[in-house]
Nucleic acid binder design. Sequence first.
DNA 1: AAAGATTGACTGAACATTCAGTCTAGAAGC
DNA 2: GCTTCTAGACTGAATGTTCAGTCAATCTTT
Lengths: 221, 221
Amino acid sequence: MKEHANGNGRASRDAAEQRREQMLRAALEVIVERGYADTRIADVAERTGTSPALVIYYFKTREQLLTEAIRYSEDTWYAEFLRRMQEIPTAAGQLTELMAMICLPGNPEPRSYWLLWLDFWAQSPRSAGVAAVRQKSDEQWREAIRSIVQAGQEAGEFAPVDVDDFTITLAALLDGLAVQIALEDPQVPPQRTYDLAMRFAAGQLGFDWKPAPKRARKSGR
Amino acid sequence: MKEHANGNGRASRDAAEQRREQMLRAALEVIVERGYADTRIADVAERTGTSPALVIYYFKTREQLLTEAIRYSEDTWYAEFLRRMQEIPTAAGQLTELMAMICLPGNPEPRSYWLLWLDFWAQSPRSAGVAAVRQKSDEQWREAIRSIVQAGQEAGEFAPVDVDDFTITLAALLDGLAVQIALEDPQVPPQRTYDLAMRFAAGQLGFDWKPAPKRARKSGR
DNA sequence: AAAGATTGACTGAACATTCAGTCTAGAAGC
DNA sequence: GCTTCTAGACTGAATGTTCAGTCAATCTTT
């Protein structure tokens, strides 16, 4: 269980790093379940099979634990996003994959992710730490869209719309749809958010996209 | 200060009603400042110049106070919205006024209103009471858009887009822009949210709209 | 390589504070 | 005098943080 060995304190430093991550992941789980404000140190301790004191030992304060947790979440998500983008050649394909990551159930589970964001938004006005992470993520996020669109335009895939306007609009649209995903509005299931977002992007950028084959056609409304 | 007088318990019942509203308004102020989760009974008591015990006297529990407060906020906002709609003849005009109410600084201050909503969203997954109010407001909200669009189409003002799809998309877009308004993102000031939302609506529905005369043209980006 | 010294990881118990909600008793209005 | 309204003192339960000290591993010294 203990990987001691090699010379200096390397092993224990690794172990410590693992501990930290374990706690960060546990914190994220608890935030999703109980909400940011109601996440207690004791919860994280319990979930990592340790004591509240140890959590404070690693993170000086509760706030530090929580802000590091959200930073961790963002970094992880963004890294996965970049990884996927690199495997896709066309801008339209990249945009499609991005939408899927955001809207459709899959590996980084969008609902959990967006539940976190609802909390970040609510916390931002009152917490400088959260606000900073949110702002940075938001910019990174828009920059990602922007660069895909720009590349697509240069490759002739996309119509020459104003990149900034389109980016902000799409980002906002996705945020709004994300709320519905997170809150599981029965009127707006994930597949529908995906279709609507794709239709908007395809319409504005002028690339072809056909909505997924509808299963049963809902009758009224 | 005390309006006693007339016969039975009417006066005191009115006074009690006023007290309640006073407390509800105070609660909303505190929620905006400190956030839903950190709103204490003592804050509301202090702001109304009374005691915590009295707040509990009127609302049995803290949760009841808070959920009634958000209901009150929604009812007030929606009533004002309806009032304004009735004074506008065209569907395009109504839609424009709606956007202004949502985006541009004015009487029901959008930023405060949206800050409340950020909290409602974050609270919804864990509070049945909040979730219920939110869901109802959301539906009411979409229904309002839908009926304006439908009227506009019947009057020949608007292009015949799919009403449901358009409604959900616009509602989501506005929610997303609202996040930027609430969080005061420097990249996306209120005027810009208004312009983008209007451009989207005008483009989709095919009515004329010219962006407000830009003041100073920002140079780079 | 054995003995001692040092460090990092960790715990249990206590502390201090914060707060929702209760209780009691009094004031105000009818 | 009966009901409604109000405040202040209080309670009980959480919960973040501190602290003194244990334990095991590693480093130093001889």
